[in-house]
Amino acid sequence: MIETNGLTKQFDDLLAVDSVTLQVEPGEVLALLGPNGAGKTTTVRMLTSILKPTAGSASVAGYDVVKHAQQVRAHVGILTEAHGLYLRQAGREYLDFYGALYGIEAGQRARRAERLTERFGLLEALDRRIGEYSKGMRQKLALVRALLHDPPVLLLDEPTSAMDPHSARQVRDAIKDLRGDGRCIILTTHNLNEAEELADRIAIIRKGTIVARGTPLELKARLLGPPLLEVRFGGEVNGLVENMADLVEIDSHGHNWVRYRTPEPSRTNPILIKQLAAEGVDVVTLSEVSQSLEEVYLRVVNEN
């Protein structure tokens, strides 16, 4: 659905995007992460045929971004960092204007606008001037604009950045539904929890180059090592750590707990529990210690 091959963009002396190769399938969310100025916006602008690649190729919804720019734009819904709203217009007028630009018939665009604004809790405000909207409402309206023509591909830049927790949850649920509908979504965000929640795969871009990619779990395993597990005991245990070290890699321990790493928890953990039981140790809990995507991101960005 989205495929880039060696996509490159050079602005005079600045190599903004360098040989980016990506593939995003229908029903998949790819989070494109990276520091400011990393090349995310330039990549997205090439995918919407606004900027022409200096080298490489890209196709969106089956259309080449250079040869079929108009078709590409007709099949993409984009939420840009700047929402581009006309503050003197009412929400309904604004959506009607964009609906007309996408060639949606008048009755249909009114119905779609109402349906989508209702979903995001904006219906009541539809006849109010956009200038009177809060930041979050404006962002929702921009998102509705991106969805108005029912595009199979969505490029969303910070979709929940200005929203309160309730609205952000609404939008995240909507993104999950859109993925469920088989849409192909690229999400650029600095909210790493959101990326982890929504993205099937993550690509980290730095200085125009993709420096890491994979599912959140793959990235964590690759960059932070095997999963970190914690076992807690019913009482104080002495000399147990040395015995466990034969089976797993000990990370840290206290008087009644041990943290360890193992590349194959499904194989190792049952053996470990059996061994502990045989030694008469009461195991209270065994759980995975959560390792955040933020650690992965910082490690990748700093290492590069």
Partner: peptide, 14 residues
């Protein structure tokens, strides 16, 4: 300047 041009450029208008 108001950055309202980009969404317009994202539409299929020539």
């Amino acid at each position: 300047e108001r950055r309202s041009l980009e969404p317009l450029l994202d539409t299929p208008l020539t």
